[in-house]
Amino acid sequence: MLWALGLWLALFFAPLAAGRFTVYLLGVILVTGLLAMSLNLLVGHGGAYQFHHGAFYGVGAYTAALLITKTSLPAWVGLAAGPLAAAFAGLMIGSLCIRLNKLYFGMIQISLGSLLWILALRWYDLTNGDDGIHGIPLPEALSGSGSAFTFLLAVVGVCLLAMHRILESPFGTTLRAIRDNPQRCAAVGIHVRRHQLTAIVIATFFAGVAGVLFVVLEGSVFPDMLFWVLSLEIFIMCLLGGWFTFLGPMLGAAIIVLLRTVVGGFTEYWTLILGVVLILLIFFLPEGIMGAGHRLRLYRRRAAGPPSRGGDRAAG
C-alpha cells in the first residue's frame, strides 16, 4: 500500500511536469478508476450483481450539472449534492433489487437504471436530451486545468482511503462473508439484506462522487453516462485489474483508458478490440492482473517456506 501512497503523492506534481493532454488523461483514469472501484466494492467484495452501476454515476453527474446550470445555488452545493443524490437513488433502487438474488437482482437493476437513462435522454426541457449539458460553470478555484486535477486527485485519494477503511472494517469482513455464504451468515444472525443495502448505498455514493468529478473534469454531462454499455465496460476494468484486490479496478481502468487512447488513434474498431480483450481475459486471466500477481506470490512463498494455512483468498 505504501507504493500506492507514494504514487498518489507523486501525481500531485503531474500538472507541473506533464503536458495538458497527459494530465487530462490521468484525470480520466482517476474518475473511471474510482467508478470501477466503487462497483468492485459491491461485486468483488459484496457478491452483488450490480449490473447498472453507471446509472448512479450519471445521477451524480446530472444532479451536479442541473443544480449548477438551472438554479442560482453556489456551484459547490451542486458538486456536494451529486454524491448524495446518487446514494439516494442507490437506496431507492437497491431496496427494490435486494428482495431478490443474483441474476434477478441484476435484471431488475438494469430495468430500473434504464428508466433513469430514458429520463436523461427524453426529458429534453430539463436535460437537453441527446446533446447533454455543456459548458457547466465551475467554482473559481477549479477553473484551471491544473487546479481541477489537484482537486480530483485529492478527492479520489480521500475516497480510496475511505473505501479501504470500510473494506478492512468489521463491516467489510461481514460483506465478504455474505458474498461467500449468505445462508450461513443469515444463520449466525447477520442481517444479510441490511448489510447489502448499506453496501449499495456506500458504493453508489462513491459512484456519484465519480460522476461529480467527471463534471469537474469535462464540464459536461451526457445521457450515455447512464447507458448500460458503460456499466458493463466498468465490469471489464474490474475483471482486468482483479476482482478480489483493492486497487485492481483502478489498474484496469488505467489500462483500458490508455488502450482506448492509443488504439483509437489508428482504428475506428475499438469496441472490437475491447471485445477480444474481454474474451481473452475471461478465458486466460479470470482473476485479473493483480489477482494473478497475488496468486503468483503465494505460490512462490509456498515453494520457499513451509506450507502456510489460511491467508489464501481463493477466487470463487
Partner: peptide
C-alpha cells in the same frame, strides 16, 4: 462451469465484437 457473471460478460464481449463486425 463458470460463474454466471463470466457468462454474461462473455456475451457482452460477443456483442462488442459483433457490433463492430457488422459495421465492417
Amino acid at each position: 462451469e463458470r460463474e454466471h457473471l463470466m457468462l454474461l460478460l462473455f456475451t457482452f464481449g460477443l456483442a462488442l465484437i459483433l457490433g463492430d463486425l457488422t459495421k465492417m
